[in-house]
Simulated scan of single mutants.
Amino acid sequence: MKGFSTIALLILSNVFMTLAWYGHLKMAELKWFSKLGLFAVIAISWGIAFFEYCAQVPANKYGFVGNGGPFTLLQLKVIQEVITLVVFTLFMLVFFRQESFRWNHLLGFLCLVAAVYFIFKK
């Protein structure tokens, strides 16, 4: 159960992280948003990032083997990186359709999946 909860919280945190880091690029298409200065955009991103931390910190706390969770620190990080790339890719494909997803991107992702395999191998 802790493993599932950890992964669910990591997915949630990465949705917020992606919105905080890249959402402003899409929001710039809105007239009112495009008039905001950099400081306002940063403040909005920080506000969104707060929710990222509200999911990320518990995910790491509950998921870490030192706290009774199922994952080592290295495993947590690799899981988080793969989730980050999957969430970001979905975000890109949905909101930035002019961006392309090519064979080399897929190959890179497969290398990351291989990294997960090797990190979890006993």
Rank of each mutant, 00 (worst) to 15 (best):
T18F: 12
T18N: 12
L19N: 06
L19S: 05
L19W: 10
L19E: 09
A20T: 08
A20K: 03
Y22D: 12
Y22C: 06
Y22G: 01
G23R: 11
G23T: 13
G23A: 14
G23F: 13
G23E: 11
H24M: 03
H24A: 03
H24E: 04
L25G: 11
K26F: 06
K26Q: 11
K26W: 11
K26D: 09
M27P: 01
M27S: 11
A28H: 13
A28D: 14
A28Y: 12
A28W: 06
E29C: 01
E29V: 05
E29T: 09
E29I: 04
L30K: 15
K31N: 03
K31P: 00
K31W: 00
K31A: 07
K31R: 05
W32C: 00
W32V: 07
W32K: 06
F33M: 05
F33W: 13
F33P: 03
F33A: 07
F33R: 01
F33K: 01
S34I: 04
S34R: 06
S34K: 09
S34N: 15
K35F: 10
K35L: 14
L36K: 13
L36D: 02
G37P: 02
L38R: 11
F39L: 14
F39Y: 13
F39R: 11
F39S: 14
A40Y: 06
A40P: 00
A40R: 06
V41F: 04
V41R: 08
I42P: 00
A43K: 06
A43F: 14
A43M: 10
I44S: 02
I44N: 01
I44K: 00
S45G: 14
S45V: 00
S45Y: 01
W46I: 09
W46V: 05
W46F: 11
G47N: 01
G47T: 02
I48K: 02
A49N: 12
A49C: 02
F50V: 12
F50W: 09
F51S: 01
F51M: 02
F51P: 02
F51T: 02
E52Y: 15
E52A: 08
E52I: 00
E52K: 07
Y53A: 10
Y53D: 04
Y53R: 13
Y53N: 08
C54E: 11
A55Q: 04
A55F: 15
Q56L: 15
Q56E: 10
Q56R: 09
V57A: 07
V57H: 08
P58H: 05
P58I: 07
P58V: 05
P58F: 08
P58Q: 06
A59Y: 06
A59Q: 04
A59W: 03
A59L: 05
N60I: 07
N60A: 07
K61E: 14
K61M: 14
K61W: 13
Y62G: 00
Y62F: 13
G63R: 06
G63V: 08
G63E: 10
F64A: 13
V65T: 13
V65P: 04
V65K: 15
V65H: 12
V65M: 14
G66M: 08
G66E: 10
G66T: 04
G66R: 07
N67I: 00
G69E: 07
G69I: 06
G69T: 04
P70I: 11
F71M: 08
F71D: 09
F71K: 06
F71T: 10
